[in-house]
Nucleic acid binder design. Structure first.
Lengths: 358, 358
DNA sequence: TTGTACGCGTTATCAC
DNA sequence: GTGATAACGCGTACAA
């Protein structure tokens, strides 16, 4: 006798079949809804399987069928600073949706000294995953270049600049920031600064574009020193705000690429003795719960991360089940959540004042 | 010939063996460091495997070996409110550590209408995971009762009240809150209120115990209305603070079970026109980056979530490799991070004033 | 409607 | 030191 880890405790299809006096093949077909099995037999098999707690081995099933019902998600490499606050929400939504179709979620990190594509390649080649969900998408993203060639289903949360030939779900970041600018302009602001993130990340680039485009539309001059890129944490936000406060033509409003940056900015302003929401308005993006808890409350563009995760999960499973179908390409809108941090500019600073301070 | 998904593209051990003119067995042993293969052969096989991009199928390997090098993590069910902020950090650390041992991380959600134990049972029975990491541990936790019986390796982040017979890694929450109380008392506070979480969750219970124990030690009366349980979000924190402000003997400090609650409390106090850090001090727990960005900065007990994830990952793999060994039971300490939200009480309210207001 | 037999890719055991 | 061969548990084409 060879070896093989004796799992006599485990209920296998062989033991179930013997117990029923049927062949393994019949049992398998009965449990997998084959049309050519007698209803009686199906019922009998089902009942026994249930009673004996039989659960097919995913491993064996994979080997036999050659498909892997597992989606891979590679956590963005953390270079020092912490992970996106809504990543957990997306994962939650993703896992929930996948569970509905009996798919699993494999989460992988990128070890020091390796890169994301390498990790993904290993996961595919070793047959651990049958599809991918990508997040934190860059304008040009090597992960997507890789996946395009690899013929496995994948869905991108966000998108690259060339995004015709794959499935994605993105927030309309550009529109969101055009809307945010519209809100500020409607309140009477014209001198609006921008604290942007890493312009390689496409969401940051799109938001920046929205800001610039709306500034042009509304005739708001983006003065030298109004536009800051590479603001990715509170510390950077503080320094940028310090610069803005020294600006000869101080802005009356600051638009921020994320809530985290906005909260850093608010902190810096408060420290400088500036009343946020009166002397200077601030708007963020994300809709973090924290924005509601700070003072003043953060006016922000909200996105539903959990729902994004669910939708992305649904799409990737659909794609795996119908590989030849069209790519879903979906654009969702962020919604403006108005709180205390953005109000009409202080009268003395306004050319055309239209109202007081709330 | 039956069917079988033709994966002629994939490099299997059979194709590799044929290419080399060797038997599959020899190739397998060469790649798996068997002692009885000629060094030349090993080198030759290695080289060919590398060149042809051979990567053993995890599925087939699992079936043959009967082991699953995958750890399951069940996301805490979200009943409305959002997910723990440091969960992503823990997952990141966990996945990173697992990757070092070539283990994987399977993340599962609990679908509506099911419970966590059910999900875990399915994952084990279907052979999808070979171990578990548990978080958000309750004082009595059915998940752990289940795992104790199931003879698979698992590690608990946190612990139940009866925790002798399994591996865990916990923060010393009780000591942390004793320390926090010590800090407040050292500053001159005696009237200290507590905003606690769900007392079924053991971390919340432990922190509560630390508060009560230190209050007794230092002779701080926990007046009627000073101790609030079940504060799990900012809204609840606000209501509780409103109550505290109406208290005939208003506290000079508020200790909060988490940073999220503390930030909610700070907001509520600010709204009521109370200067946080002067009229009333606030201390939280977690060390969220946000605590640094708010005003005043949040004095808090910090824990290193990412490192917790890494340690837990290391332990669970160790346990899988040496099932008979002792259970690791590790207690880490949180560290006090002092910022602006906690200072000596306002002089008029203090019996024994020892200093001014910073 | 059901039983038979083979294959998925790998590893372990036993001969040679 | 290497080659056969039998499992691991399941799915399915084909025969009955």
């Amino acid at each position: 006798m060879p070896r093989a880890p004796q799992r006599s405790e485990t209920m296998s299809i062989a033991r179930l079949a013997k117990h029923l006096g049927l062949s393994e093949g019949t049992v398998s077909r009965a449990l997998n809804n084959y049309p050519d099995i007698a209803d009686k037999t199906i019922a009998r098999v089902r009942k026994a399987a249930d009673e004996l707690g039989y659960r097919p081995s995913t491993t064996a099933r994979r080997l036999a069928r050659g498909v892997v019902e597992t989606i891979g998600f590679v956590l963005p490499a953390r270079h020092g600073h912490q992970i996106d606050p809504f990543l957990a929400e997306i994962l939650d939504g993703l896992a929930t949706e996948l569970a509905l179709s009996d798919w699993d979620l494999l989460v992988a990190a990128v070890p020091e000294g390796h890169d994301e594509v390498e990790v993904m390649d290993r996961l595919i080649r070793s047959g651990k995953v049958g599809g991918f969900v990508i997040a934190r998408t860059r304008r040009h993203d090597p992960r997507i270049d890789y996946l395009r060639k690899s013929h496995i289903p994948f869905v991108v949360q966000g998108r690259t600049e060339d995004c015709d030939d794959y499935a994605w779900l993105d927030i309309d970041n550009e529109k969101a920031f055009i809307d945010a600018m519209g809100h500020l302009v409607g309140l009477g602001h014209r001198k609006i600064a921008y604290l942007g993130g890493d312009p390689d990340l496409n969401y940051a680039w799109q938001r920046r574009s929205g800001y610039l485009s709306a500034a042009k539309t509304h005739g708001c001059d983006v003065l030298d020193g109004y536009l800051h890129d590479g603001i990715t944490d509170e510390m950077a936000a503080r320094h940028a705000v310090a610069d803005l406060l020294k600006h000869p033509d101080r802005p009356t409003a600051i638009l921020c690429v994320t809530d985290a940056v906005a909260i850093g900015a608010i902190h810096a302003l408060a420290h400088a003795g500036i009343t946020v929401g009166e002397e200077i308005s601030v708007i963020g993006f994300d809709g973090l719960p924290m924005g509601e808890a700070i003072h003043p409350g953060l006016t922000t563009m909200s996105q539903a991360s959990y729902q994004v995760g669910r939708a992305v999960g649904r799409i990737v499973v659909e794609q795996a089940n119908a590989p030849a179908s069209e790519f879903s390409q979906i654009l969702w809108e962020a919604t403006l959540t108005i709180r205390g941090s953005a109000n009409p500019p202080a009268p003395k600073l306004v050319t055309n004042a239209k109202g007081g301070i709330s």
